[in-house]
């Protein structure tokens, strides 16, 4: 390669490396702000501020959804399989809300470790399946799975 071109290439590569390091350090320093939500372990460790509007997210724990029959109030536990946090929400839940599905909620932590949400968003995972395959999988999983499916079905149709 021509020496001038070699020199230019080195300069450009240095430029790219420099920009990458700068952006890398910036995003690393801001990681807490870039994270969309706190997970239950972070809340359990006290990393999340109390009584400040924050987002919290995780998986809705199986069998934890309690609905108030008189109003739209719902209580459920959100878990990351290490810790879990109790959430309270009044309003219409998104269609995809179900036990075993991901959610991201906006709200405030009260002093007792309860999360009072004013908005609940469903988080979809990266898995896609046809309804027939899902049915077959559930049949294979036996009666227990079929029962919890019936429960989550009723939660969806609510």
């Amino acid at each position: 390669m021509h020496p001038i071109r070699k020199k230019r290439l080195t300069i450009v590569l240095f430029l790219l490396a420099g920009v990458s390091v700068a952006v890398g350090l910036t995003t690393y320093a801001l990681r807490q702000n870039i994270n969309l939500f706190y997970d239950p372990s972070q809340i359990a460790e006290g990393e999340a501020p109390v009584d400040v509007r924050i987002r919290a997210g995780g998986m809705v724990e199986e069998g934890s959804v309690l609905r108030d029959p008189e109003s739209l109030r719902v209580e459920f536990k959100v878990t990351d399989f290490t810790s879990s946090v109790l959430m309270e929400y009044t309003g219409i839940l998104p269609d995809l809300f179900a036990e075993g599905q991901g959610v991201v909620a906006m709200g405030r932590l009260d002093g007792n470790g309860r999360f009072v949400a004013d908005q609940v968003l469903a988080k979809h995972d990266e898995n896609y399946m046809s309804p027939e395959v899902n049915e077959a999988l559930e049949k294979a999983a036996g009666k227990r799975a079929a029962m919890s499916d019936a429960e989550s079905e009723s939660a969806v149709s609510y």
Binding site: R31, I34, N35, L36, F37, Y38, D39, G57, V104, L121, K123, H124, D125, E126, N127, Y128
Partner: peptide, 9 residues
Amino acid sequence: WNTLHQPAT
């Protein structure tokens, strides 16, 4: 990071 968008399929 934690995001609402799902990871790659």
